[in-house]
Design a protein around this nucleic acid. Structure first.
Lengths: 226, 226
DNA sequence: ATTCGAAAAATAATTGATTATTTTCCAAAT
DNA sequence: ATTTGGAAAATAATCAATTATTTTTCGAAT
């Protein structure tokens, strides 16, 4: 049974590829995005690429410099800090709404998402870094599950945009905080099931800020070893 | 002295036109955006239009329905409420940061922006509705000035996106609350100059929620008279 | 009268060519 | 040696044509 809706257009496929390549660092921060090179790499025409880059510019992953081409959005500690602070603002608020309004289906989805994430974290802790993209996807799914019942589509989509920006920084340094992050996730799930929004917000804030600190240190170390 | 940077490309001009036409209701919510009709109306080619619509879809003003064309984003009371709540979350937070960190230059810009807004509000109160787009622009500038010193570019740009969505609802109903809104603005300016973030947040929350209520009532009245 | 399937019409998506703009290179002037 | 200006090369922006997909229409079957 072939689902026609599951076959994206050529342009949509290339958009997803390029977006992922930026988030996962395969297109480096600040890199010029020459249309002819992108055409060769992604196998779509220049006009289609312009459409994609315009979307990515609106998404914030690409910088469009009027008539001077496009470049991958740069990264900086300041930007990461701003992203993290905005993520905290949005996600803590959404968490609180979700903890208040979530039903038993929501609880089940939180538990299921945590289980999947925990499986990946176990693998990462044991040294298997090959699952890192899956791990980050489950990390997203877990955080999304926690806030899913917040009652505002706009808040969810805005949070998703910010989360992707945060994710990009994590993929660029690709550090793993090990048991500490896994414990945070477990604590978040417990807070969700006991509907303790204050605890949830405190854990989440700490979780994010520690992640930022860890990423910034990793970026410092990277610069020193370069 | 001709500033080359001030001559936007054909595509950029059309993007701004179409965006404004959506915000100011000249392209109605839910309306199909047929490429051939847009080409005739805005005098750009279909490929350029696709690029523009892709951007506007990423902005949230247009809905792209995969392979079935584009439509102006719909409006609803639920959406307006979500926008308002997110605006409150972002703007109150940014207000607090701004009130804390703003310097004397910031104070001057708040006073100046309030002055310009007040001039327009005086005209609106006296019955001159012809200045309504200028009035809404100064309304934006005033609110932007209040939060300008919040210290986060990302917060400012995210807030700007939400504000535009809120603005669209206001332009669609084009109601004016008269002296009540003007008093809120005055109170906000006073709170800013006295660095009273708690008062500022209370006024702002009330200001936005009353505006929402007013818009929803106006939309109900519109539906009854149609 | 209703349903189904095929063809036609309409519209979306993509392409490559053309036009417009920016960047680089190089020779002449200082 | 440095600066300036113009030409060439590179690249961005736009276009119209072609291809792909969706929607509408209409005749045949039930």
């Amino acid at each position: 049974m072939l689902d026609q809706e599951s076959i994206p257009s050529v342009g949509e496929q290339a958009y997803r590829l390029i977006r992922n390549d930026i988030i996962f660092g395969r297109l480096a921060p600040g890199a010029r995005l020459r249309l002819e090179k992108l055409r060769d790499r992604y196998k779509v025409s220049i006009t289609t690429l312009r459409e994609i880059l315009a979307r990515l510019a609106a998404d914030g992953f690409v910088r469009a410099e009027g008539q001077k081409g496009f470049a991958v959005a740069p990264v900086s500690d300041e930007d990461l800090t701003e992203i993290a602070n905005l993520r905290i603002l949005l996600e803590c608020h959404a968490l609180e709404q979700s903890f208040t309004d979530g039903d038993v289906d929501w609880e089940a989805s939180v538990v299921a998402a945590h289980h999947k994430l925990n499986v990946m974290e176990r693998k990462m802790i044991s040294g298997d870094l090959s699952v890192r993209e899956t791990w980050k996807r489950y990390d997203w799914e877990f955080h999304r599950a926690l806030i899913q019942a917040c009652g505002s589509q706009l808040l969810l989509s805005t949070h998703g945009e910010i989360f992707d920006k945060y994710l990009r920084y994590q993929m660029l340094t690709l550090t793993f905080r090990g048991e500490e992050a896994a414990r945070d996730h477990r604590d978040l799930m417990q807070a969700a099931l006991s509907r303790d929004a204050e605890a949830g917000k405190t854990i989440l804030r700490r979780h994010i800020l520690n992640g930022v600190e860890h990423s910034i240190q990793a970026r410092v170390a990277e610069r020193l070893s370069a």
